[in-house]
Each structure stands twice: as C-alpha cells, then as structure tokens.
Design a protein around this nucleic acid. Structure first.
Lengths: 104, 104
DNA sequence: TTATTATATTAGGAATTTCTAATATAATAA
DNA sequence: TTATTATATTAGAAATTCCTAATATAATAA
C-alpha cells in the first residue's frame, strides 16, 4: 500500500520531469561536457543550470568530476536514453492517433 | 535551443513523477480495472485518485471506457513498464554503490 | 597579491502541483 | 420517482518546484 519503492521510482521520474534537464541529458549523449560547454546550449541562467545539474546528480542520472577549475559532467546510468526513446515512441503514437482521429 | 520536443517528453515523465501514479500503473499490469477496484489498493481519497487517473490519461499512459456505471481503466502504452524496469535498474545500482562505499 | 574564470549555494518570490472537502453527474436499483 | 453507487469536477489551501539575483568558493592567471 504505502510503498517506499514507488517513492524512489517517482523521484527518478521527477528528476527527468523538466525540459531543461532533458536537454542536458541529450547534450551528454555524445560524451562528457564541462558546465562551461553545457551553458551556451541552454536557455537557462548559470545558477539555474547548476541547480538542474544537482537534481540530475542527486538521482544518479549524471555524475561529475573536477578538472582544474572546470567541472565535467557525464551520464552515470545510460538507461536514461532508453527511457527517453520509449517516451518518444509513446508521443509519436499519440500524435498518430490524434492525426487519424482528425481525419474522420 | 528552446525545444518543444523536450517539453512533450518532460510532460510524460511528469505524469509518472508521483508514487500514487506509479502504484496505479503497477496495479494495471495484470489487466484492466474499474476505479472501484483501484481505490481500495491506494492510500488516496476518491477524488484525488480520480485526479491522478486524469493526469495519466492526459499523457496517454492509460485509457478508459465506460461499463454501466463503472469506468474501466487500462494501460494504453505498455512502454511504461519498460520505463519502470529501467528506473528500478538505476535504483538498484545506486543502492549497490552506496553499500560498497559504506564498506570502505 | 589581485583579478578573472568556472561553478555552487542561498534566499525569497512566483509558479505549479497536490490534497481535501464539497458538490456535480450519470447509471442503476428500489 | 427517490435513493444509492460510481466517478468526476471544482475551489482553495498547503506543499513543492522553479527561477532570479546576489553572493560564495575554488582554481588559475596576471
């Protein structure tokens, strides 16, 4: 009934429940990046981006290491890409459905 | 940069970002259920449960049909189960990591 | 040193989500 | 009819998330 597992699961989904955080994850698909290279690819202030990175890190989606004065982020659990692919499949099917229901 | 696709993707994750909604999805794993059979399995008021079902329905995760005075819900896009399995894999790995880091 | 670059943290307000309580609606039963 | 069962909707308060602006910290450069 009241289930801690479901709380943990929903926490991971919550970490992905923001467009900026999805964008960050997608940027890291081709490999690690320092914050300085992530920033110019987002519509988000520096401090806000830093907060989004913290959210992703707290849920184990990304990890970071220090390199001189820079901080390099990378994907920690690549399952996240399969998850995004599955969501895209759902969205595409929904769009198809909307399309065909319009044509009737 | 500002990407509508990421907004759509994050909307689906947001629909799954609540423990009660995860619980509902899990209940539907064995087949369709009326609201009356979902309710006693949740720690959630009737009206609140109804709202959660609406959230899941709006994102195409579940669908519903009417049967007499009952409303029967079922999973519409079963990818959601693969997603939950992937999240569970992430969580298990995180737990393992925590465990081994404690033992050092 | 002092300045500069890179990133994180904090505080507080704005926006959004969540829940409860009350009410509405729709189908069936009496 | 009237009552009952099943579900949805609504309004508003409480909780949470999000963003901005300011400040802090840490590393490097001058």
């Amino acid at each position: 009934m009241s289930n801690m597992g479901n709380q943990l699961i929903s926490n991971v989904f919550k970490a992905l429940a923001h467009p900026t955080r999805i964008q960050i994850v997608k940027l890291l698909r081709n490999g690690e990046l320092c914050v300085c290279d992530i920033l110019p690819n987002l519509d988000s202030e520096q401090s806000n981006t830093s907060q989004h990175l913290t959210v992703l890190k707290n849920q184990g989606i990304v990890e970071s290491r220090k390199d001189g004065s820079k901080v390099i982020y990378s994907i920690k659990n690549k399952e996240v890409y399969e998850m995004i692919d599955l969501v895209e499949a759902i969205i595409l099917r929904q769009i198809e459905e909307t399309k065909t229901s319009l044509l009737k």
